[in-house]
Amino acid sequence: MGAHIVMPIQVASLTELTSWLAKYDTKKEVLDHLDRLYTQSNFTKQYKLEFEIRALQHNNLSVQEFYAAISDLWDRLSLTEPNVLKDFTPYIDRREEQRLVQFLMALRSNFEGLRGLILHRTPLPTVDSVVHELIAEDSCIKFHADRAPKTATPTVFVVP
């Protein structure tokens, strides 16, 4: 908060500052007022991070790269949560479900079958266990793609 308070003091003369703060009786009231004026809420950060999470797509990233990218956004978003919620089990459970939904929605279409199976499990798996499954599935997809017969380029022979 100190950095925020220095700014108005630097731009105001002592007379202006005195008249501006005269309506407060205590130092705490002055500091609370300055804090309300110059401290931004986490809402802007939260909005930006939520937007980035929704825009992030698996596309050409490996499962591990995608998971690392979305986990970083989730970790940064969790820093904007009120402290009272960080130990509240129903909130934590709901947040983990929301993360699973965000993760599954952003996956490439070649994981559609596994995504459907995961969504119908009771109880829902954790994101970490889903990542483990996806890494295994991705390895199988790559293995079969490498072993698939290469299609030859069609050739036309012209006979005179």
Score class of each variant (00 low, 15 high):
Arg36Tyr: 02
Tyr24Gly: 05
Glu16Cys: 08
Lys28Phe: 12
Gln64Phe: 00
Phe88Thr: 04
Leu37Asn: 10
Arg36Asp: 09
Ile53Phe: 06
Thr44Ala: 14
Tyr91Met: 04
Ala22Leu: 14
Phe111Gly: 01
Gln102Arg: 11
Leu77Gln: 12
Leu104Phe: 02
Tyr38Cys: 01
Leu79Met: 11
Glu81His: 02
Thr18Pro: 00
Asp35Glu: 14
Val158Ser: 11
Gly113Met: 04
Ile118Leu: 03
Leu73Pro: 08
Leu49Met: 09
Leu31Trp: 13
Lys86Leu: 09
Val127Asp: 02
Val156Thr: 09
Asp128Gly: 01
Ser139Trp: 01
His33Leu: 02
Ser19Gln: 15
Leu34Phe: 07
Ser139Met: 10
Thr153Met: 13
Leu77Asp: 08
Thr26His: 13
Glu81Phe: 04
Glu50His: 11
Leu85Phe: 09
Ser129Cys: 01
Lys45Thr: 12
Thr15Val: 12
Met105Thr: 07
Asp146Thr: 01
Pro125Cys: 03
Leu79Lys: 13
Gly116Ile: 00
Tyr24Ile: 05
Glu133Tyr: 03
Ala12Tyr: 05
Phe43Cys: 04
Ala12Trp: 08
Leu134Phe: 09
Pro90Val: 05
Asp32Thr: 11
Tyr67Met: 02
Ser19Pro: 02
Asn110Gln: 15
Thr151Asp: 10
Asn59Met: 07
Pro8Trp: 08
Thr122Trp: 00
Lys23Asp: 03
Phe111Ser: 02
Pro154Phe: 09
Leu124Ala: 13
Trp20Leu: 15
Arg108Met: 01
Ser13Ile: 05
Asp75Met: 13
Leu79Phe: 07
Met7Tyr: 06
His58Lys: 09
Arg108Val: 03
Leu14Cys: 04
